[in-house]
Design a protein around this nucleic acid. Structure first.
Lengths: 159, 159
DNA sequence: ATTGTCTTTGCAAATTTATACATTTTCTTG
DNA sequence: CAAGAAAATGTATAAATTTGCAAAGACAAT
């Protein structure tokens, strides 16, 4: 779906920033943000992202993200990074990103620090980044994520 | 009750040592060990011990202990604070090793020179190593090899 | 032993979560 | 573009979990 990825990111943000204790709660929060879906889909989303439900300090239960850091604010992309990502190709289930000469390192740094679910890890050379997506992450998942989380990075002709 | 504490310990042991996916499952295991109780009590026990339920790698869900040493992170393990190898993650059948900044090269060099059967080859960036295992080598094969051949690099995994 | 208090438990009902199946949407490939 | 394949979603339902309430220990102080 067009906005599944966006939705997954929103779910992450919500879980990171508030104490959510049921999928119905989460559903209502998402509805306020404009995402319309059923509890069944949420169950699948949470499973996809390996979100766990855990008893809480006080009363009740909360969902917790399987990631190390739950930072809500994301680092801004540097101005100089604008439009320097030249192409995205896929091979062997991995993404090969081409940048303007010398920019691979900084772009990879930015991508790494998104803590994006989709990204297993990156290795950067001078103008090439090898990005290993997590299992189950599709080409378009990855591209959508990059578009959403690092707007302006990708040159227009890339898709 | 007289043996509630014993029971809690037994539950801990069971959860640590097997993949339990429902309270009914756990109930049956406990029955075999001589503990007779209802699922409702189990729900309370798990809440008391803050045991979380999390989607699993393959299919299904598992209970996990909130033990500080037991990470609920995706990375298979974390290095000790003194170690250089920070995490090992798997995606696309390959291992992605994260190191402290600047150490990827030397760690990759060391791994290469083990001449370990398990390792097809490595590519190192600044703080990331992509390790391609040989066909048929499992995740745990690789981790065990690294533990044995490069002790100290990887923290002992506590269960 | 009796009383009162606190903890633990079972039962049953309510709530929450997962999933089989059908349908729709998206993607790929000719 | 069309056809087939794959992915995503909703519906309805099953499965799993939580909880209110009452009853049954456990324990302390009379």
């Amino acid at each position: 779906m067009k906005n599944r990825n966006e939705r997954l990111m929103e779910i992450r943000r919500l879980i990171a920033s508030s104490n959510i204790s049921s999928q119905d709660d989460l559903m209502k929060l998402l509805l306020k943000k404009g995402y319309e879906l059923t509890q069944a889909t949420l169950s699948r989303d949470l499973k996809y992202m390996r979100v766990a439900k855990m008893p809480n300090d006080d009363e009740g239960y909360v969902y917790i993200l399987p990631d190390k850091e739950q930072s809500i604010d994301e680092p801004e992309m540097q101005a100089s990074s604008f439009g320097v990502l030249v192409s995205i190709d896929f091979a062997q289930g991995m993404a090969i990103l081409k940048t303007l000469p010398g920019h691979a390192g900084s772009i990879a740094y930015n991508i790494d620090h998104l803590n994006a679910y989709e990204v297993g890890g990156t290795i950067a050379g001078d103008d090439t980044i090898l990005l290993i997506p997590r299992d189950g992450v599709s080409k378009s998942d990855l591209i959508n994520m990059l578009k959403v989380r690092l707007p302006g990075l990708i040159r227009e002709q890339v898709h």
